[in-house]
């Protein structure tokens, strides 16, 4: 006689009839492991209700809660990257671009839109980290430049939301020069005395920090974002020891004098509106 005789009947439900949890219904915070429904998570602007961790989001999400009634007009949306250098590493650059477009449904790593923010007209350029690490190539530079041109032409404040690993290597010096290009355009905005607010979100590093992201009349950031010029790994290798806790976070930058304030995503719209109002009146 066997020791383990099955007394109860075994499970007979066929796999297809199993009541599975549909994917994406739940969100588990990567920081505190708190579980919440995805619906609650997005209603909370993709911020963990338990620990306040700000999940990385893209241009669609930012536009959805910054523009009044989610209404906005996208600018320069017909620009896509070429392959000026016929760049090839382990993959062709054109294939990388194609794969990124397919995966994300985006055309490149920034989207520019104009609309109302608490009834004040603004131009917003928001970056998408999901598109080749939010890297800045010619298209990102040109789109930002056109957004700034729109601001200049209509005398409307310009807002950028940075989220990028830096310059796009596959466009080499072309991408390097986008740093000069965006900064030169911003100098025109500064000369015309039109406000520019730079919002730095997780992560903002490399050529983005060394150009438009640090040039705001106001530089503001979401809490806990990684912000720096050199990446933490590179700095660690340079100094040959462990980095202090909180190094290159928003809070670190605020403490060292490079940010005007830190703002939780939930208050982003109202604080932006107040800043804009104070510039105006």
């Amino acid at each position: 006689m066997g020791w383990f005789k099955r007394i109860k009947e075994n499970i007979k439900t066929p796999t297809r009839e199993k009541r599975e949890t549909p994917e994406g219904l739940w969100y588990k915070c990567p920081k505190c492991k708190h579980v919440m429904s995805s619906e609650d998570h997005s209603a909370n602007l993709w911020v963990c209700e338990n620990c306040g961790y700000h999940e990385r989001i893209g241009s669609y999400e930012y536009f959805s809660f910054l523009f009044d009634n989610r209404e906005y007009v996208e600018l320069a949306s017909d620009l896509i990257s070429g392959d000026p250098l016929k760049f090839r590493d382990t993959k062709n650059y054109v294939d990388r671009l194609e794969a990124s477009r397919k995966k994300t449904g985006l055309k490149d790593a920034v989207r520019i839109a104009t609309g109302l923010l608490n009834e004040q007209e603004v131009v917003i350029g928001a970056m998408d980290f999901s598109f080749i690490g939010g890297s800045m190539g010619s298209v990102v530079g040109e789109k930002l430049a056109r957004g700034i041109d729109h601001s200049l032409k209509h005398n409307v404040p310009f807002i950028s939301i940075s989220k990028s690993g830096g310059a796009r290597m596959m466009e080499a010096a072309f991408s390097l020069m986008q740093m000069a290009k965006t900064s030169a355009k911003l100098s025109m905005l500064a000369k015309a005395k039109i406000p520019y607010i730079s919002i730095l979100t997780d992560p903002t590093t490399g050529g983005i920090t060394a150009s438009f992201a640090m040039l705001g009349d106001l530089n503001i950031a979401e809490p806990g974002a990684l912000i720096g010029f050199a990446g933490p790994r590179v700095v660690k290798e340079t100094i040959g020891k462990d980095l202090p806790e909180g190094f290159q976070t928003s809070e670190f930058l605020l403490e060292h004098g490079f940010l005007d304030y830190i703002v939780a995503r939930k208050e982003l719209k109202s604080k932006l509106a107040l800043s804009l109002k104070l510039f105006k009146h």
Binding site: A180, S211, M214, F229, V235, Q248, H256
Partner: peptide, 24 residues
């Protein structure tokens, strides 16, 4: 540009960015 700890504390990115704007 030097990728050191103090360089980050003192704003390496901001320093370069400022030059790009001012030189323009």
């Amino acid at each position: 540009a030097f990728p050191g700890l103090e360089a980050e504390e003192r704003g390496q990115g901001e320093a370069i960015a400022r030059n790009l704007l001012e030189m323009s």
